[in-house]
Design a protein around this nucleic acid. Structure first.
Length: 270
DNA sequence: ACCACAACCTGGCCGC
DNA sequence: TGCGGCCAGGTTGTGG
């Protein structure tokens, strides 16, 4: 569910409640949520640690802790993080509860149980494979071109590949390719430099706008306070099958690329 | 390198 | 109401 803009929103909105707080208790309610270390070991690793920051890399949330370890959370499809008061009770989808020295608690909820929590000394063990951050101003169109060169996979699949660029998921891949007027089925290596430059530019614009809108709430995504994002109101193609393209009026088409639903305008994207 | 497919899970929706 | 089938914003692993 959450992609870069949603994860960025969550990191920002957790900052006020988490940074500087100390973890005083840990309750694991679904053991497989804890990927590293084991569910049995995670409590002693976390209790007593102070949360030093709330950061994001790709779709991963990073919480550096006093003592040098980092709490890493990937929300996958349906994960949510909520800071709640002492009176709140965890429901059946709440798989991890961290109690803070403020008396408030951090709930990790995840209906589909795909989300994972890690505590590691070196975040590189988890982030090593990730490609560059698309919003990093140091990422040039030439570097993006180099990562697409020679690739025969459809550009849609390459944008979803976290080793090529980090943080883009199915919603924003479709929206980026519409904004860039590129057919999602085109092999990445076939794209001209001016087309890659367009993708580079609109990726930054689309993601920055989505962060400004606090992400896209289609089904499960919620901000830590329970509010929804607003960016779904700007979607041009995603889940708009059969509806008119805002630019030319042609009906938006849905196809499957790399096992993923893909939406595009057959007139504007060639 | 790439594709297809399965797994991991639950819930919503649709048709019958 | 119930049941089966399909769908879902993500990632990883297997086999070809």
């Amino acid at each position: 569910m959450p992609e870069l803009p949603e994860v960025e929103t969550i990191a920002r909105e957790l900052r006020r409640d988490l940074v500087g707080r100390r973890i005083v208790d840990v309750e694991v309610r679904w053991e497989r949520t804890i990927a590293l270390p084991s569910a049995a070991e995670v409590k002693p690793v976390l209790v007593g640690r102070q949360i030093m920051g709330t950061d994001r890399r790709g779709k991963y949330l990073l919480f550096p802790l006093s003592g040098g370890q980092t709490l890493v959370i990937h929300l996958r499809m349906t994960g949510q993080l909520h800071v709640v008061g002492p009176e709140a009770t965890p429901d059946k989808h709440t798989h991890l509860v961290l109690t803070l020295d403020s008396g408030r608690r951090l709930f990790f909820r995840d209906m589909r149980k795909f989300g994972r929590v890690y505590v590691v000394a070196d975040v590189a063990t988890i982030l090593r494979q990730l490609g560059p951050e698309p919003l990093n101003p140091d990422l040039t169109p030439q570097q993006l071109a180099a990562r697409l060169a020679g690739r025969k996979a459809p550009i849609k699949s390459l944008l979803l590949d976290q080793r090529v660029v980090a943080g883009i998921g199915n919603i924003y891949a479709d929206e980026i390719l519409f904004a860039a007027s590129i057919d999602p089925r085109r092999p990445g290596g076939d794209l001209q430099m001016n087309e890659i430059a367009r993708i580079h530019t609109v990726t930054r614009r689309v993601l920055a706008q989505a962060i400004f809108d606090h992400g896209s709430s289609l089904q499960n995504y919620q901000r830590p306070g329970g509010a929804k994002g607003q960016n779904q109101e700007r979607h041009q193609v995603f889940r708009r099958t059969g509806k008119p393209c805002a630019r030319c009026g042609t009906a938006i088409v849905r196809v499957v690329i790399g096992q993923r639903a893909t939406h595009f305008c057959p007139q504007c994207q060639r």
